[in-house]
Amino acid sequence: MAWKAIDRITPADDDGDAPVLSEAVREKIRSFFPRYPEKRAALLPALHIVQDAVGYVSHRAMRDIAELLDIPPAQVLDTVTFYSHFWTRPRGRKVVVACRSLSCHLTGAEAVIEAVKRHLGIGEHETTPDGAFSFVTEECLGACEQGPCLLINERLHGRVRPEDVPRLLNDPDNDRLDVPRSDLYDGIRGPTGEMEGRA
């Protein structure tokens, strides 16, 4: 008798030999160290920065972070997977998050979620083939008075009606914020605005 078991002994496909974090990204992560009495506390900031710089938190990125923070890679995996904000596989350039909690549900979130899926042609946790969009639903986004709401990257859209969805998703500026940004948690951007995550 034998069983089929998932192989966890060999490294993951996205865990190559070469580090993925550039020196600039590492430096940015290190800049968080003085904020905390312990280096490990910079883990959440590091994950935000890496997700922004690389697009998602790959296994190789987790190892790079573990090395930087002096913790075992398993501890990074443990923390990464606890939080729903982090992606452990590639995602689209724009992540559409629909609130599914009660306030939004009562104001019509279900229809909006269906409209988004229909427009993008993908289901939850999926990414469009062109890599433009990923879609997820999440519990309460804390914008209940604006329900039903959608978050497109950083930008929150409130009182979304199903019929607004195509226009909203087609708008190239749908993820642009009106307020001045702070780049504290951003990945490192090059002169062209392209991410310089990869080493």
């Binding site: 034998a2 069983w3 089929k4 078991a5 998932i6 939080y83 982090f86 596989r89 946790h125």
Partner: peptide
């Protein structure tokens, strides 16, 4: 239900080999 986008497709092997 998925908390976050899952891991890469699993490789399988027989145990005991």
């Amino acid at each position: 239900p998925v908390l976050q986008a899952g891991a890469a497709p699993a490789r399988e092997r027989a145990v005991p080999a």
